[in-house]
């Protein structure tokens, strides 16, 4: 009864149906009956519980912006009240699980910290215990009810938190993917001329990404010239220089002429001081010169109109 869903971003999530989950949490029909019976007693007090949560929230040192304006607070309160009514109805089916997943998704979307949600759950558990203790029922009956409530509450929290982290993970994966894309914007600036402005810090992982992207673009566009602008690279050391040399060598192997531009005086000095042999790679001080070389290489001249 378990489907493993692999989303487009590659995160694995298990979606189990209500029956499987109930079995896993050892929540029996008897437990649900107890929760339902207790629900009849607690239902009139739910509004007061929710009020209490907002009193607690107001006491907190941080102010979560979602609770700042009254219209939103009113909406959240309505949802919260409905949440508890659903909870004490204890009708656990796939629809119920879906509503809890929905809550997780909404929380992740509005970036509500999990601790606030957990605190709200705890708040209610505390209230339930208070009501239960004031009860005249025999002790062991009360304990069994308490256990049933606790089980169901954990069940609830699990579904919501699980969905929450799933959504957050997906967002993070998506972001890191676009970071890689953004960090290597290989573009054709002219027919047969590719350019990559490098910005930031180059480590071995990024160097590999760059090499792969550049070679792929050369293969795709069949460009005969590639300008690598390194004026935005923060640090040039032996390792980074080696990466750059490797990239240019691979370019040349594919039949594409590499040009490295943007060697500032400081970078040029560093390279000489480190004793790095750049070999036969064409280097220029600025992009302008590189472009001139590139036009020359592809057999073009720029003339004034």
């Amino acid at each position: 009864m378990t489907d493993v869903i692999v989303s487009s971003t590659g995160t694995r999530s298990t979606t189990k149906d209500a029956a499987t989950l109930l079995k896993q949490f050892r929540i029996t029909d008897a437990d649900l009956d107890l929760v339902r019976q207790f629900g009849d007693k607690i239902r009139p007090k739910i509004d007061a519980f929710v009020d209490q949560f907002y009193v607690w929230l107001a006491e907190q040192p941080f102010k979560y912006e979602f609770f700042m304006d009254d219209a939103h607070v009113q909406e959240v309160r309505t949802q919260q009240t409905k949440y508890w009514h659903d909870f004490f109805d204890a009708k656990i089916d796939d629809d119920f699980v879906e509503t809890r997943r929905h809550i997780g998704r909404v929380h992740a979307k509005i970036e509500l910290p999990l601790d606030i949600y957990m605190a709200a759950m705890n708040n209610c558990l505390e209230n339930c215990v208070d009501v239960l203790m004031a009860d005249e029922e025999p002790g062991n009956e009360r304990q069994r009810t308490l256990l049933a409530i606790a089980k169901l509450m954990h069940f609830d929290e699990m579904i919501t938190a699980d969905t929450y982290s799933q959504v957050t993970n997906e967002v993070m994966l998506e972001q890191s993917k676009s970071m890689i894309e953004m960090s290597t914007p290989v573009t054709a600036i002219w027919d047969d001329i590719l350019m990559l402005p490098l910005v930031g810090i180059i480590d071995s992982k990024r160097a590999l990404d760059i090499t792969a992207r550049v070679l792929e673009e050369i293969g795709r566009t069949q460009s005969s010239c590639f300008i690598l602008d390194i004026s935005g690279v923060a640090i040039i050391d032996t390792a980074v220089a080696n990466y750059l040399i490797k990239i240019t060598k691979a370019c040349r192997l594919m039949g594409c002429e590499p040009l490295i531009s943007g060697l500032s005086p400081a970078i040029a000095q560093t390279i000489v001081n480190l004793g790095i042999d750049v070999g036969t790679i064409q280097t220029t001080g600025n992009l302008r010169e590189a472009l001139k070389h590139a036009f020359d290489h592809v057999g073009m001249t720029v003339t004034e109109k």
């Binding site: 792969a212 050369i218 490797k246 060598k249 691979a250």
Partner: peptide
Amino acid sequence: RPGVAASIV
């Protein structure tokens, strides 16, 4: 090919 170029280097 890109892969061949990369591995030779």
